[in-house]
Design a binder for these strands. Structure first.
Lengths: 136, 136
DNA sequence: ATCATTGCAAACACTTTGCATACGC
DNA sequence: GCGTATGCAAAGTGTTTGCAATGAT
């Protein structure tokens, strides 16, 4: 597996402690965290960490194409590292967000009603496998 | 066409000037406005209108099922009245949001990877018909 | 020494809350 | 008159900005 530092360099980003830890976190935990969740997770490890740095870093990563910024179902931005085609599913009970590996080429490079489609985001909502178990 | 007051009563909402105007606006202008856009559009007509009332009203309408609150592509909530099945398309150039009448029953009442799907939101992004014309 | 990154504090934008006033039946 | 809707002001979130201190080469 490629090292975090390699990935940063490939994207023309100078490695720093904070940047490495943040990207590492996003690569390890595919939980679509918010900036605040990332901050909370890392501040024990880097006590001087500031939220500003987290925001700056996420912005840089997103601009350079390492991360994807998601507006899923609520009014907050979530970030993810995974770039493989997939869709999102959010459980209405436990609020967990799952990646589903349903590729969805339906609209790729296509014209729909005369509009040129460049991206598509499919967000599903319902009750997840685990919560269904608890219900029954 | 059903009157706004009828619709309100059907949903157990006491009609008031503000409520009527807000729902009227959303029924007439299918632009997926934010709370602020609605406020700006109506404040000339109702000079005493407050944003709190707009927020309260949108919340009530959403809870009672008259409106749908959308987290489309940015970090802000947009509201729509239209409940027919459709998907959203946002132009990356002019930022306009279109409704596309592609019903999308693909995932309806379905289990995907063991999760029970209750809602789906399909958001497309690209260049709209009009902006394509300007480009060429 | 230079240039970029970090991080505090303050500003900002959007939304919610507390509460007194006003309205409608 | 009573109960609800309204709207001001203040508080609460999530995020951005200005800028001085720090860090890396």
């Amino acid at each position: 597996m490629k090292s975090i530092i390699e990935i940063l360099k490939e994207h023309d980003i100078a490695p720093s402690m904070q940047r490495v830890k943040i990207l590492e976190y996003l690569r390890n935990y595919k939980t679509h965290p918010t900036a605040d969740m990332i901050y909370q997770a890392l501040v024990d490890d880097i006590p001087t960490l500031s939220k500003t740095t987290v925001y700056n870093t996420l912005k840089t990563f997103t601009e350079k194409g390492i991360l994807l910024a998601l507006s899923l179902f609520e009014n907050e931005v979530r970030y993810e590292y995974n770039k493989d085609p997939h869709i999102h599913f959010k459980c209405m009970k436990c609020n967990k967000i799952y990646d589903l590996n349903h590729s969805f080429d339906h609209y790729n490079d296509n014209l729909v009603d005369g509009h040129k489609i460049l991206e598509h985001h499919v967000n599903l909502k319902g009750i997840c496998k685990d919560c269904l178990k608890v219900e029954n």
